[in-house]
Simulated assay, not measured.
Amino acid sequence: MSQTSETVLEIDLSALEHNYNYLRSKLSPNTKMLGVVKAFAYGSDSVAIAKRLSKIGIDYFAVAYTREGIALRKGGIQKPILVLHPQSTNFEEVIENDLLPNIYSKFTLEAFIETAEKLQLKKYPIHLKINTGLNRLGFDLDEMNWIAETLASTESVKVEGIFSHLAASEDEAERDFTKYQIENYQKALDTLLPQLDFPPIRHLCNTSGIINYPEAHYDMVRTGIGLYGFGNCAEEDKKLKPVGTLKTIISQIHHIKKGESVGYNRGFKAASATKTATLPLGHADGINRIYGKEKTGVLVNGYHAPIIGNVCMDMLMIDISGIDCKEGDEVILFGKEKSAEEFAHNAGTISYELITSISQRVKRKLIN
């Protein structure tokens, strides 16, 4: 990778391809793969990511909201796109853009049927979400017969897929709960499938489910965080490659005397003479205040430099005492040399939150 002269998020498409191929190797040849590209493809570039995944063989995509699916369509993505959390007010836009709605409640099923019938549609594809224990979105198991009766009363929609979501598939201590969820999902299928006239795509596993529960791969699996280089455990992380590398530069170096302070509210007070550097990114760029006060750090010429004081909106300061560096030198916050998981964990959060928080004002640069 080249040296940067500004704050930039490098997006390594060859790393994405490596991760895709690794996860695909866990599947039988007939199992489809859905790539989750919500939240700007986990903070990167949803259209660029979707284009490369389309090229190398992904079967489906998923986004959280309707406008994310529309952005993919405008970017030229033609693969099926599942909208995981659509709102009824957007159902006409879902249909106009040939998106697949996740129908997760009596209200959304009735509202989507009403919209589809108003537009005189026949067999518009939908996916049904079953609540198997996450208790976030989804039909309860005792609603399966109601779903079947409701679907039998209309020709406007057809069930293309039935899915659920695992709550703790990465956690060995919650293995019994995950098996309980798999059993609940199968119970829902056993009730609903005999009442349908079309065999739907069954999908349950997320990234950790792909790795830990091969018996539950069904017809399709969904992967989000795994595509971007994180396997939810250290062992799997080693087999994946981070797609994003966040870089910046040293704007200015200061020599702080003992007793002097740095930043807002005097968040850092020097116990001894200290050399600091100011970097041109802050909480408006996604490096939140939780990362300040030496909870985590960055790499300067290969050496760890803690973030000191309070992170500002557009700047943060680091302690570079003892590090040979100069203004204009490159600084790495996370990437291949220092993982986003490590950066986030040290501040008490998770890689998902860190990488999806990187602001859209940070320049994206595609490589490979």
Rank of each mutant, 00 (worst) to 15 (best):
D140T: 13
N102F: 01
H85L: 14
I126V: 13
L151D: 01
Y180T: 08
F91N: 01
G161T: 06
F112M: 03
K123M: 08
K129I: 11
F112A: 04
A168Y: 09
T115D: 00
I147V: 07
A116N: 03
D190L: 06
K129E: 14
I162Q: 00
D142G: 05
L99C: 06
V83Y: 07
V94G: 04
L109F: 05
N102T: 05
I81H: 04
L82M: 10
S105T: 05
L121H: 06
Q120A: 14
M144V: 14
L137G: 04
E155A: 05
D190Q: 10
A188N: 03
E170R: 13
D190E: 12
I130A: 00
L166R: 09
F112S: 04
L134W: 04
S169D: 06
V83L: 11
I130H: 00
I130P: 01
K129G: 05
S156L: 04
T191I: 14
L192T: 04
T150A: 11
P80K: 11
E93H: 13
G161I: 01
E143P: 06
E149H: 14
F163W: 07
L119G: 09
A168N: 07
N131W: 02
P125M: 08
E114C: 03
V159E: 00
T150M: 14
A173N: 15
E160G: 12
L166I: 12
S88A: 15
T150W: 08
S169V: 01
N145Y: 11
A188M: 05
E170M: 14
D142V: 05
N97P: 05
E93R: 15
Y185R: 02
K123H: 13
H127K: 06
L189N: 13
D176R: 08
E160H: 12
E110L: 09
E110F: 08
E149W: 07
A167V: 02
N90R: 13
E149T: 12
L141W: 00
S153N: 11
T89A: 09
Y104E: 07
I147K: 01
A188D: 05
K123W: 01
A173H: 14
F177Y: 11
D142E: 13
A168Q: 07
T132G: 03
L151C: 06
S88C: 14
P101I: 01
N97K: 01
G133D: 03
G161P: 03
H127Y: 10
S164N: 08
A188K: 02
E143C: 06
E174W: 00
G161H: 02
G133P: 02
A116E: 07
D140S: 13
E170Y: 15
R136P: 02
L134D: 03
D190N: 12
Q120T: 12
Q186D: 08
E149A: 13
